[in-house]
Design a protein around this nucleic acid. Sequence first.
DNA 1: CATTTACGTTGACAAGTGTAAACGTAAGTT
DNA 2: AACTTACGTTTACACTTGTCAACGTAAATG
Lengths: 149, 149
Amino acid sequence: MKKNDTTLMSPSEWEVMRVIWTTGGASSKEVISLIQAKSTWSESTIKTLLRRLVEKKMLSTIKEGRRFFYRPTITEAAAMDKVVSDLFDHLCSMKKGGVILKLLSELTLSRSDIEQMQQLLSQKIKTAPVAIACDCLSNDRNCDQKKSC
Amino acid sequence: MKKNDTTLMSPSEWEVMRVIWTTGGASSKEVISLIQAKSTWSESTIKTLLRRLVEKKMLSTIKEGRRFFYRPTITEAAAMDKVVSDLFDHLCSMKKGGVILKLLSELTLSRSDIEQMQQLLSQKIKTAPVAIACDCLSNDRNCDQKKSC
DNA sequence: CATTTACGTTGACAAGTGTAAACGTAAGTT
DNA sequence: AACTTACGTTTACACTTGTCAACGTAAATG
């Protein structure tokens, strides 16, 4: 398949990372029991995912006797920023604002998150353009003439 | 692979949809030339993607003579909302706010988008909790006791 | 009408993913 | 020491995705 984009990890692998990010590091035993508390994945499956994450360098291992202790090589915040940016990079620029608005309306945000957003937005609005152009087609045929834009 | 989650379409397929959403519908010829104006995909590749999108019911076809006219079966906004929600559903709840904040800081938003967000946030802050709990581990062992949370 | 063109259909194939069974062996247990 | 357990390693396999080439035939063109 020749892996075109910079995929960090698959969705299943992501779930494994979540527990390791949250614990700060763990043995396969811990990962397995924590994951199994929320899913039906077999031990084998989780071991495979751990192995693949090590292959992808998302986890580093420290040998403790003959067991391994797995620890993340990226922070959760960095990984989250990356997957979210990668996704947004492929969305129509004109419509990103609307998508975020929808997201904001559906999420429960903390008071502090909201305050920071308000702060940021009040700065951004000072220089915000009236409209954002669609970038779904090539330049010479952009969406000013198109139906859905 | 037994398709666990509700994946709408692959990244490549998404790019094809973008042109069809933007044009409102198109023949394979149009799709091919519009896509090729921005990528190096072969005609064959694009035809395969169109076919798979039809199989997945993301596109419907109307026969015009022996050619097909492809039109989207979902709106771009709906598809965007779905992929974004699906992604956020797997991110640590505690950190979603921070991710959106980062996103907002990096995007160029229109004045109107910003105003709507400000409006929404000023409503939400009235009932916003002080903090959001991490949901990366199972309940009985949640992150109040964990390092990274 | 013969030829070229256009476009849908088939077939292909390697890499990634979801999901797991089986195996080997160091360690702990009896 | 024999037995059981735990945990890493190997092997497996079907489905998805990225990428195309080749084929067949209706249509357009000369």
